[in-house]
Amino acid sequence: MSQDASMSIADAGMSAELAARDDVIVCDGVKKWFGDFQALRGVDVTVKDREVMVVLGPSGSGKSTLIRCINRLEAHQEGRIIVDGIELTNDLRNIDKIRSEVGMVFQQFNLFPHLTVLDNITLAPIWVRKKARSEAEKRAMELLERVGIPEQAEKYPGQLSGGQQQRVAIARSLAMEPKIMLFDEPTSALDPEMISEVLDVMKDLAREGMTMVCVTHEMGFAREVADRIVFMESGDIVEVGTPEHFFTNPTEDRTKLFLSQIL
């Protein structure tokens, strides 16, 4: 794939309205190696303000690595990533800024097991955003209300079901009032009956205009909510398009193969 072709792919599937919005995340030729394994082979992608972007692809295709590079849980080695006008480099000041403006939800929830649900949510607002405890707790209760589990505030994560834990994890990220939310396969570790309760919360978020990048295997969610869908394979972006284009009329053979296997 030539450099020109990939540049055009980055903007593919964008409506005029979407194209006119601000660029919130810009990835330009991002490359990343783990030892001698190349996980990202020059990814170009732009996420617009209030856009919901779903990243699809087989396992090991670099989806997770890409979004983990966006909040610098992994450092990319070549290319550039600009989030909200700030370039990601080794600059400590920038990393701190990005981390508090980009929320992330993990596959394994990663709640802090030794803290109550309320403490899990208020920890970062208090110590990173320097809010007063009372204020942080008030906000935390609002968020728990919003994800539908205010009565669990004093429990420990281990006492909750998987779906509840993931909703707490979303509330924990939202408590930092992020501009962007990253979701790394948020429903993959859940029992089937709990998936919808998490997806509902995510759909609400999307409706309220949060900028979101989701790595997920939930095709229904992708079709319903996504503004654009990105398909990745072996560290490359293969195809970008609207859900309609993607599910009805994909251009690339690899995308067709993937869809035929998964649908």
Binding site: D23, I82, G85
Partner: peptide, 21 residues
């Protein structure tokens, strides 16, 4: 924001100052 993003992209990548790197 579009302006800053574009201007960041347009400028060459800068190494951060040593005391923040």
């Amino acid at each position: 924001v579009i302006d800053t993003t574009q201007s960041v992209l347009a400028s060459s990548q800068q190494r951060p100052p040593i005391w923040r790197n």
